[in-house]
Nucleic acid binder design. Structure first.
Lengths: 334, 334
DNA sequence: CTGAAAGCGCTTACAG
DNA sequence: CTGAAAGCGCTTACAG
């Protein structure tokens, strides 16, 4: 059985209240009783029961994190950022993986409510209305990562449209005119549809025609990028550059291009999105849009902390800038 | 304010005890009161306060996970496995990142004790005596992942010596006689020293001489593999094959080899360790030893669950087998 | 089948 | 400066 306040109180011949105050550093004890209590606590190897404290204080100092897949390096990095700041502020992190399934998401929101977490970071696959409703109704301070919200819930994003625009614009400025895109699934609003939109916008602004055949849809994974590129390579008129909505698809594209006997970037330039580790592993190394993954997590947790503290958020929707990282997979045309 | 048992009891005109029993499905209530209580609970939108329940039951249904770096894909995958099984068994996961620092490790062990977690999965960088002592003294059921322990603490591993042996043996059977190794830091007993040991053992068993100059120490990251390979390439007599103790270093080695104008695997074969995503991103794709990362996590959690349930563990130390995955970076000699 | 009571281990006004 | 008491929201013998 663990040592409790009562044990210390008994041994010190004082009340539990006094022990509690001393141990919490509330400065209303004579240094005499103080020292005695501290000494006994140490002797007995006392450590507080945080469950009891949470119940009494109505605060758990736990943040709940809902994510679709922990093992996904992107989420893992964001989580790393959340954890870093949470730990700094004295919070622990409960992590739940939903596999992007709405039912699981709702289940975990319920569990987190029961666990009385002080806040929630939500970054599961999509953001179904049901989840958003549950989050709002939970009245638990919540920050949403990378998902558009309809309610007042605060959220943090990257500007998928603008950053994609940046990538394509870079290709255009390199002299490319026939630029293909390997997009994500368009049902994915942010990383799918918005990145495609950025591509379209850039083409439009630079008076380049949008051609259906130059857009192939993948699922963000390497193999889908490979297949998408094979399709593009079967076109009568090849593109001179490809914008992939993820590094993995970009790497897949490079593989397909090389397999077809063409060279990157001499024959076709490829640009990715994410700056994940694989963008450095491939050959040539992939030019890409670097997402501030860790900062997304950090900032999410900082926003959450403010809300928990009752502070006003200056902005309920924050966009973090990405960085164009130029490597060997892109080349000026001519 | 959230709805409590008391609210339901009052509205239903029964005692809290009865409400508690009904809500917990303890079958000693007339279906009449039962239905009434359930109905009211639903109306009021009641959900239990798990903190109070934890205090009363002396169980939190929380598992604490101590890891050095969440963002590391290897750990992220293991965590994914732990989470999967934990969730299945009705446990939540608190995750703490230590950066591999002993001080942080001790701090988190303390926090987890205070949070009264039902069990701990420990997979931080090393396993300092102080940590092991703290874990043992905490009396919290604990499973250690990938770290040798001195105490009775249960642990789960891969056989680093044997699996490395397997990798090197494969190269030998391909006809290679001059095989270099890019090892991890030897202060890292398991992934560092033991993998080197497996290399040495294989050489010895096949009557190949061990040559100091063929061993270069890296830090498991890509850049260190590149540098290590550059050193190897400056040898008068080049190796025909290289065993890297991590995929990242293997990829770095490939880059260095290609940069020097040589080919993989025609001139030099390379084999890695881990089967991480980057082993598929590089060119050629890397032959490697595939670690059962997710299963390590799953099994750790299953062991932990048994301990929590008070069951006997058949084996306190479990080794999970790895798989030799043959890809394009290795080639038969001649 | 149901209720009153004690308990889990803390915190925190309130008195003194 | 310190203690008695109530409270946080549950669970669980024990009686009836």
């Amino acid at each position: 059985m663990a040592i409790t306040l009562k044990d210390i109180a008994k041994k010190a011949g004082v009340s539990e209240s006094t022990v509690s105050r001393v141990l919490n550093g509330i400065p209303k004890a004579s240094s005499e009783t103080r020292d005695k209590i501290l000494k006994i606590a140490k002797e007995l190897g006392y450590y507080p029961n945080d469950v009891a404290r949470s119940l009494a204080k109505q605060k758990t100092h736990i943040i709940g994190l809902i994510v679709s897949d922990i093992a996904n390096p992107y989420f893992a990095s964001v989580i790393g950022g959340v954890e870093e700041v949470a730990s700094l502020k004295g919070y622990s992190l409960i992590i739940s993986a939903t596999g992007g399934k709405e039912k699981e998401e709702l289940k975990y929101i319920k569990i987190l409510k029961e666990k009385k977490v002080d806040g929630i970071v939500f970054m599961s696959g999509r953001m179904p209305d049901s989840c958003e409703k549950a989050l709002v109704e939970s009245e638990i301070p919540t920050v949403v990562v990378s998902r558009k919200v309809k309610s007042f819930l605060p959220s943090i994003h990257i500007d998928n449209i603008g950053e994609s625009y940046k990538a394509v614009e870079y290709l255009i400025k390199l002299g490319h005119r026939r630029i293909a895109m390997i997009s994500g699934p368009c049902i994915d609003k942010e990383s799918g549809y918005h990145r495609l939109l950025g591509y379209k916008n850039a083409l439009a602004d630079y008076d380049l025609p949008f051609e259906e055949e130059l857009v192939q849809e993948g699922d963000f994974k390497m193999d889908s990028g490979r297949k998408a590129m094979e399709n593009l390579l079967s076109l009568k008129k090849l593109p001179t550059a490809v914008f992939a909505a993820s590094d993995a698809m970009g790497v897949g594209a490079i593989k397909a291009i090389k397999k077809a006997g063409l060279r990157v970037p001499e024959d076709i330039s490829v640009i990715g999105f994410d700056n994940s580790i694989i963008s450095l592993a491939c050959d040539p190394e992939l030019t890409t849009i670097g997402q501030p993954v860790k900062d997304l997590g950090r900032t999410a947790m900082e926003m959450l902390y403010k809300i928990i503290q009752g502070e006003e958020l200056e902005r309920r929707t924050i966009y973090l800038p990405c960085e164009l990282i130029i490597r060997g997979s892109t080349k000026s045309l001519g």
